[in-house]
Lab assay of single mutants.
Amino acid sequence: MDSLVVLVLCLSCLLLLSLWRQSSGRGKLPPGPTPLPVIGNILQIGIKDISKSLTNLSKVYGPVFTLYFGLKPIVVLHGYEAVKEALIDLGEEFSGRGIFPLAERANRGFGIVFSNGKKWKEIRRFSLMTLRNFGMGKRSIEDRVQEEARCLVEELRKTKASPCDPTFILGCAPCNVICSIIFHKRFDYKDQQFLNLMEKLNENIKILSSPWIQICNNFSPIIDYFPGTHNKLLKNVAFMKSYILEKVKEHQESMDMNNPQDFIDCFLMKMEKEKHNQPSEFTIESLENTAVDLFGAGTETTSTTLRYALLLLLKHPEVTAKVQEEIERVIGRNRSPCMQDRSHMPYTDAVVHEVQRYIDLLPTSLPHAVTCDIKFRNYLIPKGTTILISLTSVLHDNKEFPNPEMFDPHHFLDEGGNFKKSKYFMPFSAGKRICVGEALAGMELFLFLTSILQNFNLKSLVDPKNLDTTPVVNGFASVPPFYQLCFIPV
């Protein structure tokens, strides 16, 4: 009986604490739906499609509103004006990374994606500088992407125009580009180590996009005490870190300090320079996690976009025909596509942009946080508050993009057929937390897609009208449904 009384008292205290925290903070924060004790607004949000729920709530509470995930307040920004004001106009104040408990377990605050403060700034600055020195957006990395595009075309030829699921092959190409940047090595598509790495990356994007992960991140005790797919994700990350550590040891034994070959060499050189400046942010643990982040951000996002792009091109054969006509006119058949071609191919450029806009790969991006107490639109948001960005509300804005739910390359073309930029184009987020590999991803999408369409016609196994382009999961990332196609050599 005594234990029951204690339990009831504990629960009562928890409920009172929950109510007090919510009521004391709500006077400062933007308005929002009334949260339930302990669980907050979790029942009012469709976990399978958070973005749709945010759109519905914005119609009631406006472009800036507050939700509670458990006891934790989260300020939501919906629509271009609110997102721009926060991420661009007040970029420094909104540059923090929001709480992501599962990532905390995986990387302990290291790396480039989930770190904060001085650690994040130094690692991000170093990573950007190193990638630029190796030619991100310049010639040397373009050579690597072109080489991988040629290998991709050869792998597709091996399908002999038979029906195939493109998931694996389209994942190999961007993964190999990242391998060449980090390890100075590309792998054969049949290499077992490479296959294991690909498998872990593919599993992780599916797990991260599941409703279960949303629950884990908002009720963090689940991570330590409950079984579930989150444990598989943590094991996959541990596998990748151990693999990278092996490569780091190989580099330490063979590195030429006067001739760095890749990202690992550059990081080890930085560690050597910083060894007298303790404590340094440049450690082996930081290198492991930064490399894992580059793999995660640079492989599955690009391969998922490529997979979605081919599905949309199957669905819209008239678009595919126009792209192939432009390829034939500008590039021809006797040389590989290059980035200089893009400025002469406005329709193809528009298609690449429209694919990214339409699929809305990361509907709410990753959570941000404010780095200080900030007054925002007459609300006071306390330091450390998590900020949720609705990228969907920007990419699918119906004023900027008429009929935003329709796939239409003319969203990025003017009346004369010239490519038209849009400030609403934010597939990689915006501001200080914009994806480090934005330029690389854009290069890969253009070169891989043009190389495929230069060499193959795409054949659907069903009537294009019957192809479903609805994402199968739409949590962290929008993942396309399973499909097969035939690559018919031109």
Rank of each mutant, 00 (worst) to 15 (best):
L128D: 03
L17A: 14
G62N: 02
N289G: 07
P337F: 02
N277S: 12
V8A: 14
L268T: 04
L268I: 07
H396V: 06
G135D: 09
R144H: 07
I74E: 03
V6C: 12
P317V: 06
N196Y: 07
Y189W: 04
F407L: 02
G117Y: 07
R335E: 06
F110G: 08
G96L: 09
K465Y: 06
F69G: 05
A161Q: 12
E281D: 08
P382E: 07
I207C: 00
P260I: 04
K158P: 00
Q356S: 10
N474C: 08
F69Y: 12
R150V: 08
E415V: 09
L7G: 12
M136T: 11
K465G: 10
S286Y: 05
I327A: 04
I327P: 00
D463K: 06
L36Q: 01
N334T: 14
I389Y: 09
T302F: 02
M269F: 10
T320M: 14
I284V: 10
P382L: 01
A291F: 15
L485Q: 00
N217G: 14
K200G: 07
Q278D: 11
K232I: 07
A477C: 07
L128P: 04
P464H: 07
K241H: 04
S18G: 14
F487A: 01
P260H: 07
N176L: 01
G32V: 02
H344Q: 14
P30I: 02
L440G: 00
T392V: 06
D360V: 09
T34C: 11
D262L: 01
P367T: 15
L361R: 08
D463W: 02
N258A: 12
C175I: 07
D224F: 10
S162W: 05
L195F: 04
K459H: 10
L445S: 09
M129F: 11
I205S: 05
L380S: 11
R342S: 07
L128I: 12
N258S: 11
L131S: 06
L71N: 15
S303W: 04
S95R: 09
W120E: 07
E203H: 05
W20F: 12
D191G: 01
F376S: 04
K383D: 04
E400Y: 10
K138T: 14
I374E: 02
E203P: 00
L128H: 12
S209L: 09
D224I: 05
Q356C: 10
T304C: 07
T283I: 07
L366F: 03
H230R: 13
N455G: 06
T385K: 03
A321F: 09
G431M: 02
E354M: 00
V8R: 07
G46V: 05
F219N: 07
Y424V: 06
D349R: 15
G40K: 04
G475P: 06
K84L: 07
Y358E: 03
C175Y: 05
F448C: 02
K315W: 02
A103L: 15
T385P: 01
I47E: 11
C435E: 00
M257S: 13
W212T: 07
N236K: 00
R21I: 14
L71V: 14
T304V: 11
V490I: 15
Q22E: 11
Q214T: 11
F401A: 03
S429G: 15
F482G: 13
V462Q: 10
V394P: 04
Y61K: 02
S390V: 07
G32C: 03
T66M: 04
V8G: 14
K432W: 05
I327D: 01
K185R: 12
P346M: 06
E155I: 04
L208W: 12
I47G: 14
V248M: 06
V319Y: 10
F487L: 03
G32K: 02
G431A: 05
E415W: 05
E81F: 05
F219S: 08
K232P: 03
G27I: 11
A321T: 13
F183I: 02
L77S: 01
P227Y: 10
S24T: 14
Q252N: 07
V237P: 01
S280L: 08
V490K: 15
I39R: 05
A477K: 13
L458P: 03
T385V: 04
K160T: 02
N116F: 04
A173N: 00
L170Q: 01
G96Q: 11
F295L: 15
E199H: 13
S115W: 02
I488R: 05
T469N: 03
F110P: 06
K119D: 15
G137R: 07
L195G: 06
E400R: 08
V248P: 03
P409Y: 01
T283V: 08
A238K: 14
G117V: 05
L313C: 09
K158S: 09
K119F: 03
R139H: 11
